[in-house]
Amino acid sequence: MADKFAIITGASTGIGFELASIAAENGYDLLVVADEPLIEAAAADFERHGVSVRSIETDLATIEGVDSLLAAAEGRRVDLLCANAGRGLGHAFLDQNVDDWRRVIDTNVTGTLYLLQKVLKDMVARDDGNVLITGSIAGFIPGSFHAVYNGTKAFVDSFADAIRNEIKDSKGVTITTLMPGPVETEFFERADMLDTSVGASESKSDPADVARDGWDALMKGQAHIVSGWKNKVQAAVAHVTPAAILAEQHRKQAEPGSAADD
């Protein structure tokens, strides 16, 4: 058993998989979670680094799912939490099923906050621990045809800044927000966005690069990291561009059928 223990959510693929790989390489025992059976195969991959790995398949959109994750930690001190699990949903809001958009909110916001509250209480009590929250530059942009997702990421980005201030006297606890742009993962397929300009784009970031940026920022105790120079520029521009213009730009990227217009 290693001296260090990490919980990483959404670890079956994409950024979460890469974060778990880096943590394992750095000697962290792992508890990894996803809402799909693929998490078992991912766990076997992480074990190759010689650390102890436990995996759990559960739904982090529910309080019960988060509780089952925490129970799987078996009371072990959590040195690192990567709150990475997230869900998108494309198409026009008025056409979306209520259960679908609620699942996005419950995964990205409710489940994430509940997990953070549970883990951060212990970290702050002992004044030691590191948290990486996967936000997004989408939180800076009104997300036409991806409105619920972008809204949840605006919440997460803002929430992380607020909580970081609340616990500022706990010098041994750090909270880092990783804010990537579009990443080459299964995200767009699961969000039913493969017929959009952004979903079909071949210029998305490599999840390994995004995870490395997040990890490096986490280890330095940085508050934020926007991964990728193009995304840094986009984030900076978003802060000074009127919302109506940003929404129209996002529409061109995320409206169904926009891939055919490129």
Results as ranks from 00 to 15, higher is better:
Trp101Arg: 06
Ala236Glu: 13
Thr107Pro: 14
Gly90Trp: 08
Ala254Met: 14
Ala244Met: 11
Gly90Val: 08
Ile56Gly: 01
Phe188Ser: 04
Leu120Met: 11
Glu166Met: 09
Leu69Met: 07
Gly199Pro: 05
Val104Trp: 12
Ile163Phe: 04
Gly75Arg: 13
Phe187Val: 06
Val32Glu: 01
Lys232Pro: 03
Asp161Arg: 07
Glu64Val: 08
Glu64Cys: 01
Gly221Arg: 06
Glu255Val: 09
Val98Gly: 10
Trp101Phe: 13
Ala211Arg: 10
Ile175Asn: 03
Asn108His: 06
Ala41Val: 06
Ser136Ile: 04
Ser55Gly: 01
Pro37Trp: 00
Cys82Lys: 04
Leu19Glu: 05
Ala244Trp: 15
Ala211Val: 08
Arg76Met: 03
Asp161Val: 03
Ala85Tyr: 07
Ser52Thr: 12
Met193Glu: 05
Val237Phe: 14
Gly257Ala: 01
Gly27His: 07
Val53Ile: 10
Leu60Val: 02
Asn231Ile: 07
Asp67Met: 06
Ala217Gln: 02
Val33Asn: 00
Asp262Trp: 10
Ser144Arg: 14
Gln117Thr: 15
Val66Ser: 04
Glu47Leu: 04
Gln222Thr: 07
Met219His: 10
Ala208Asn: 12
Trp229Phe: 15
Arg48Ala: 12
Leu218Lys: 04
Ala72Thr: 00
Leu70Met: 09
Asp127Asn: 15
Ile63Met: 12
Ile141Met: 08
His49Ser: 15
Val183Trp: 03
Glu202Ile: 12
Leu30Pro: 10
Phe155Ile: 10
Lys118Val: 09
Ala6Met: 08
Val156Ser: 07
Leu113Glu: 05
Lys171Val: 00
Tyr114Leu: 09
Val226Gln: 03
Arg126Cys: 05
Leu194Tyr: 03
Gly129Cys: 06
Thr176Ile: 03
Leu81Asn: 00
Phe155Val: 10
Asp99Phe: 11
Leu178Gly: 07
Val183Asn: 01
Glu36Ser: 06
Ser21Gln: 14
Ser12Cys: 06
Ala6His: 11
Val104Thr: 10
Asp59Thr: 02
Pro37His: 00
Glu166Ala: 07
Phe46Gln: 08
Arg164Val: 09
Ala236His: 07
Met123His: 02
Arg103Ala: 15
Asp79Leu: 05
Asn150Ile: 12
Gly221Glu: 04
Leu69His: 04
Glu25Asp: 15
Val148His: 09
Ala259His: 00
Ser55Thr: 02
Ala154Gly: 14
Thr9Tyr: 04
Ser203Ala: 12
Asn108Glu: 06
Leu81Trp: 00
Phe155Glu: 13
Ile137Asn: 05
Thr196Tyr: 08
His146Gln: 15
Gln249Gly: 15
Leu94Phe: 15
Gly86Lys: 01
Asn26Lys: 14
Ile39Cys: 00
Ser205Tyr: 11
Ala247Arg: 14
Tyr149Asp: 12
Leu69Gly: 03
His250Tyr: 14
Ile133His: 06
Asp128Ile: 10
Glu57Lys: 02
Gly90Tyr: 06
Glu18Thr: 06
Asn84Lys: 02
Asp262Val: 06
Ala260Trp: 04
Lys153Ile: 05
Ala238Lys: 04
Pro207Ala: 03
Thr174Asp: 07
Thr58Ile: 01
Ile175Trp: 03
Val78Asn: 01
Asn150Val: 13
Ser201Ala: 03
Ala24Ser: 09
Val109Thr: 13
Phe5Asp: 00
Ser144Thr: 14
Leu113Lys: 02
Ser203Met: 09
Ala138Arg: 12
Ala24Lys: 13
Lys171Thr: 09
Val210His: 08
Val148Ile: 14
Asn150Pro: 11
Ala85Pro: 05
His224Glu: 04
